[in-house]
Design a protein around this nucleic acid. Structure first.
Lengths: 224, 224
DNA sequence: CGCTTCGGTAACCGAACGGTAACTGCACAC
DNA sequence: GTGTGCAGTTACCGTTCGGTTACCGAAGCG
C-alpha cells in the first residue's frame, strides 16, 4: 500500500509543467503530465493518479470542467493552480470539488508540501491503520482491540463482527447481515449465533457498546 | 446530524480574531475564541470544535505546540494562519498535523471557503442518512428518532409507522394503508391497531405531530 | 338537540424476541 | 490421546411488543 504515489499534472505552460514534474519526481512520486483539458481527463482515467495538480486556465475546456469530470468518475484529491487575485475562479474551484489551491507564482517547496499534505490526508482516510470511536480503539493491522486503554482479547469471529459494526458506527445492522458478513455464511436456518458473539463482545468491552434494536439487529454506539 | 458546526479560533490579535469570528458566525458556525496557547488547548477539550483555526505566533506556547496537543487527544482538522513568507513555520505546521494554512494577510472570503472545504471533507465521512421535518429528526441508519433534540424510544411498529408518514409529510394516509404498509398485513378484520400506535407516537413525540382526519386516517404535520 | 359514528384511551393477553447459560462438535497443539 | 479454545446450537426464561377489546368522549348529521 505504500507503493509509489501517482500524480497527474495538467498544465499548459510547458515550463511550469516541467518544473512541477521534476520537483515531484524528486519527491519520489510517479508523475504524468497533460497539457490540455481533454488529454487531462483521458489521462486521469488511464493513469489512475492518487492526486491531480490542475491549472485553471487550460486550452480545450478549462480546469473547472476538468475537475468536474475527473471527480465525476472517482474521488481524487485535486490541487488547483490559479492566477493571483482570481478569487472568483478560486471559489468556484473549491465548490466544484478541488481540495486545495495555489496561486501563481508559487514556490516548489510549497507545492511539494501541499501535495504531501493532501496525500497524507487521503491515506489517513483510506488506509487508516486504526479505527477510533471514542475510547474504543481497533488496531486493524495488529488485529488488536482496546477500550479506555485496556486491551481485550477477542476471538476471530468476535473481532470480525466488531470491525464490521465499527465501520458503520451507530448504523443498525440486521442479524442476517451480521451473520453473513462477519461470520461465514452458513446455509440453513439463521440462528442465534450472532447473539452469542454480541454477548461475548459486551462482556469483554462493556455492555454499553452495542445497542440492541428490537426486531431488527444490533448497532455499535460511539462511546462518549 | 446537521447540527451547527463548531469552530474554535485561536489568535492573539484581537482585531483579527474578532473579524474571523464575525465572518464565521455569519456563515452559520458556532464560534469560540481563545487568545493564547494554553486556553486554546483547554477550549479544544471543552468546546469540542469540529475545526480549529490556529495562529502560528501565540503567547504562552506557539501554534505548533497547540496543534500538536490538540491532535494528540483527538483528530480535528486544523487550519493554520502564518505570516507571509514564513515558509519554515509553514512546513513544520503541515508536518505537525495541520490540514491547511493561510498566509496573512488573507481575505475573509478565502478563509470561509477553506473552512467549508475542510468541513465538507469530514462531513463526507460522517454523513448519515437522516429525515428532518422541523424539529423532528429521524436517523434512518441508526433507527433513532428525536424531537427538539430529545430522543424518543420507539418500538419497531411505531418507528415504521412514523417513517412511512414522515416520507409523505402532511399527506393523509388511510387506516388500511397504514395497517398494510407500516404494520405487516394481517388478514382478517382491519382493526383499531393503528390507533394504538398513533397514540403511542403522540405520547412519545407530542400530540401535535400527527393530525387526525375524521373518517379517513392520519397525516404527519411538519412541526414549527 | 339527540342519535349515530368515529376516534381516544387504557387495560389486557398471547406471541415474539432477546439475554443467558448451558452443551456439542470441531480443530489444533502438546 | 488429551486438553484447550472457539463456533454454533439448543433450551429456558424474563421482557417487550403488538393486536384486541371495552369504555367513553368527541365529532358529524338530520
Amino acid at each position: 500500500m505504500t507503493g509509489q504515489r501517482r500524480v497527474l499534472v495538467v498544465e499548459d505552460d510547458i515550463t511550469i509543467a516541467e518544473s512541477v514534474a521534476v520537483r515531484l519526481r524528486a519527491e519520489g512520486f510517479v508523475v504524468s503530465v497533460a497539457h490540455d483539458g481533454p488529454s487531462g481527463v483521458a489521462l486521469a482515467a488511464a493513469f489512475l493518479p492518487d492526486l491531480v495538480v490542475l491549472d485553471v486556465m487550460l486550452p480545450g475546456f478549462d480546469g473547472l470542467e476538468v475537475c468536474r469530470r475527473i471527480q465525476a468518475s472517482r474521488s481524487v484529491p485535486v490541487l488547483m493552480l490559479t492566477a493571483r487575485g482570481d478569487e472568483t475562479d478560486l471559489l468556484v474551484g473549491l465548490a466544484v470539488g478541488a481540495d486545495d489551491y495555489l496561486t501563481k507564482p508559487f514556490s516548489m517547496r510549497e507545492l511539494a508540501a501541499r501535495v504531501h499534505v493532501l496525500l497524507r490526508r487521503v491515506s489517513r482516510a483510506v488506509a487508516s491503520q486504526a479505527l477510533e470511536l471514542g475510547d474504543l480503539v481497533i488496531d486493524l493491522a495488529a488485529r488488536r482491540v482496546s477500550r479506555s486503554g485496556v486491551e481485550a482479547h477477542l476471538t476471530p469471529t468476535e473481532y470480525d463482527l466488531l470491525v464490521f459494526l465499527a465501520e458503520r458506527p451507530s448504523a443498525v445492522q440486521a442479524r442476517e447481515r451480521l451473520l453473513a458478513e462477519a461470520c461465514g455464511w452458513h446455509e440453513g436456518a439463521s440462528s442465534r449465533t450472532v447473539d452469542s458473539h454480541v454477548k461475548a463482545l459486551r462482556r469483554k468491552l462493556g455492555a454499553d457498546l452495542i445497542r440492541t434494536v428490537h426486531g431488527v439487529g444490533y448497532a455499535l454506539e460511539v462511546p462518549r
